[in-house]
C-alpha cells in the first residue's frame, strides 16, 4: 500500500494545516493569523506552525500554488512559472497603466497617510483631485475620515489591496523615509549655490 501524503495523517498539526489550507482557498483576501485562529478554533502559535508546514508544501518550484505572507495576512497566489499561462486568461486591472503621477500620489499616501488631497498637492505641486479619484476607483487607496483642521477635507490611506498588489507584508516593508534621498540640507546647499551664481 502507498504511504499516505504527508498532510493526510493523524498528526493534530497536520489536521489543523488542512483546515487552514481550506480557509485560505475560500478567502479572496489575505487572512491574518488571528482570523485563522478564530475560524479554526485553535491558538495562534499552533496556527503559525501549521502555516510553516503549508509554506513548505506551497512554495515556488514545488507547487503551482504558492503561500505568501502579504498585506498583514496569509494568502495563496499562482506560482511564477505559471504566470505566462495566467496572463493569457486573466487581467491585472488594478495596476495596469498606473501613471507616474499616480505612483507619486500612492507613495505620498503610503508614507504620510491618512492625508488629504491638499496635502498631496502641497508635496507634488499640482492638483491631486483626478489622480486621487483614479486610485480610489482602483481600490489602492480609500477614504479614512475627515481632517477637522483642514475644513473637513477627506483623508485617504492605502488599502490592503495596495500592499497585496505591490507584494508588501505591510506598510512597514516600505523603505525607511530616511533611506530615501532628499536631504533638506543638501537641497538647501544646492539652492544657495544657484543663488550665489546669480549676478548681483
Amino acid at each position: 500500500m502507498d504511504r499516505p501524503l504527508r498532510l493526510i495523517s493523524a498528526n493534530p498539526v497536520d489536521r489543523l494545516a488542512r483546515v487552514v489550507e481550506a480557509l485560505l482557498v475560500v478567502a479572496s483576501q489575505p487572512l491574518s493569523v488571528e482570523d485563522l485562529a478564530v475560524a479554526a478554533n485553535d491558538d495562534t502559535e499552533r496556527i503559525e506552525t501549521a502555516l510553516r508546514l503549508l509554506g513548505e508544501r506551497y512554495s515556488e518550484g514545488r507547487s503551482g500554488i504558492v503561500l505568501e505572507q502579504v498585506a498583514g495576512g496569509w494568502a495563496f497566489r499562482a506560482s511564477r512559472e505559471a504566470a505566462e499561462a495566467c496572463a493569457t486568461l486573466f487581467e491585472r486591472p488594478v495596476e495596469r497603466g498606473l501613471s507616474g503621477a499616480a505612483m507619486e500620489t500612492l507613495a505620498i499616501v503610503a508614507y504620510f497617510g491618512p492625508c488629504t488631497r491638499p496635502d498631496v498637492a502641497r508635496i507634488r505641486g499640482v492638483a491631486a483631485d483626478s489622480v486621487v479619484a483614479g486610485l480610489v476607483e482602483r481600490g489602492l487607496i480609500a477614504e479614512s475620515g475627515r481632517d477637522a483642521e483642514a475644513a473637513g477635507a477627506i483623508r485617504y490611506k492605502t488599502t490592503p489591496l495596495f500592499e497585496r498588489v505591490f507584494g508588501l507584508e505591510s506598510l512597514a516593508a516600505l523603505p525607511r523615509l530616511d533611506d530615501l534621498g532628499g536631504e533638506a540640507d543638501e537641497i538647501r546647499e544646492r539652492l544657495e549655490a544657484v543663488a550665489e551664481k546669480r549676478p548681483a
Binding site: E104, A107, R124, G125, L174, I187
Partner: peptide
Amino acid sequence: RLADYRRMKEAA
C-alpha cells in the same frame, strides 16, 4: 518641501 518631493519621487 523640495526634499519631501524628492523623497516621494524616489519612493514612487
